[in-house]
Amino acid sequence: MATSNEAGPGAGWLQRVLIGRNPKRTVVRIVVLAAVSLIVFRYVLLPVRVDGGSMLPTYRENGVNLVNRLAYLFREPQRGDVVAVRLLAGGHRMYLKRIVAMPGETLVFHGGRILVNGKLLEEPYVKFPCDWEHEPVLVGPDQYYVVGDNRDNQRELHAQGRAPRALILGKVLL
């Protein structure tokens, strides 16, 4: 009897911490929180894990980030934005790249520097430069040229190029 008296207040405290004073209300809160999380993290802020070092040092390998899927709802992507580009087959794997050229522009790599419409593009975020040479590329009317910040590898091995607007999922948040 004495034991149960001692355990009673303890158990009550634990119950209050775990399921609250009103269990029904707690269940409703959990359901609402789960639903809101599902909607937010599926349709608004997409959680992504960075795999690979093509965006170093801006985004380190295995770092976790969020992609804002509503970023381009009322405005178009801008030069310098880091965007998530989904692949042709679906969105479980995607590219994380920076927009360097806009629709209709011509881009060329000369001595590792980017020239857009003949003008040198300042890229303070590039800490690992390259010596890439590339013939001029005309970006189509509904495309953006994207490339990673880490250029310290062969051009052929670095995923870059024109991304159709429809495949740009959103802007990286952090």
């Binding site: 692949l87 001029p136 870059q160």
Partner: peptide, 12 residues
């Protein structure tokens, strides 16, 4: 093999 990101020159 196909690529989402195309980097070849696009002739006007």
């Amino acid at each position: 093999t196909v690529k989402t990101l195309s980097k070849g020159p696009l002739a006007p």
